[in-house]
């Protein structure tokens, strides 16, 4: 190994370099790709230093299995599930698309995705929120409830008025701070199903 000493040192120096690149990643998907790069470099370093079995394990488990499993885990956890009524998108198409686009931008800042689940009627929509199938529901209430009369009066000129109920507190805080679409009423629903507060 004497004549190869310098190259071995340089190859080994690549490992902390890629490790720093990995830990400074913000986006989880980019970090997964960087983890793959780190795994490839690590396998090379182990092979060069003579540990062929460790290199093989790193390539098989560290690179292949770990990043695939983590990709599936990140994909299913960084998502907001929004339940809507099936005919909502046809009734107020433009305004609703605007609302969804705003929501996508807000969630995109936090590397999250928006998944929309259509439901056939109001009852199954409410049931889905209570049974934690979705994180939030967006609907167009025709008969205003007494709590929201003021809000409905505010958007009476604009006939399309959406009511979004969120059951995750952190999502509610984020949406309350940043979602400024006109004609959207945001409420926080406690997991038990009782309505707490509204804005």
């Amino acid at each position: 190994m004497n004549e190869n000493d310098l190259s071995v040192y340089v190859i080994t120096a690549l490992l902390p370099l890629t490790a720093f690149m990995l830990i400074f990643q913000v986006n989880p998907y980019h970090a997964l790709v960087m983890r793959g790069i780190l795994g490839a470099i690590a396998a090379l370093v182990y092979a060069v230093l003579g540990a062929a079995d460790v290199a093989l394990t790193e390539a098989l488990v560290g690179t292949m299995l770990a990043i695939t499993l983590y990709a599936v885990a990140v994909r299913s956890s960084l998502v907001m599930r929004l339940g809507i009524l099936k005919d909502l998108s046809t009734q107020g198409e433009r305004q609703f698309e605007q609302l969804l686009d705003d929501l996508r931008i807000i969630l995109g800042k936090r590397h999250m995705r928006l998944e929309v689940f259509p439901y056939t009627d109001m009852q199954s929509l409410d049931q889905a929120l209570i049974e934690k199938e979705v994180h939030a529901v967006c609907s167009q209430r025709s008969q205003p409830q007494s709590d929201f009369e003021q809000d409905y009066a505010a958007c009476e000129n604009d006939k399309l008025c959406f009511h979004t109920a969120v059951r995750v507190q952190r999502l509610y805080e984020i949406m309350q701070a940043e979602l400024t679409s006109p004609g959207n009423i945001l409420t926080y629903v406690k997991p038990s199903g009782s309505k707490e507060e509204h804005s």
Binding site: A40, A43, A47, V48, G50, A52, D53, A55, L56, A59
Partner: peptide
């Protein structure tokens, strides 16, 4: 090392 490299 050669066999491991091919598998990798």
């Amino acid at each position: 090392i050669g066999i491991v490299a091919v598998i990798i």
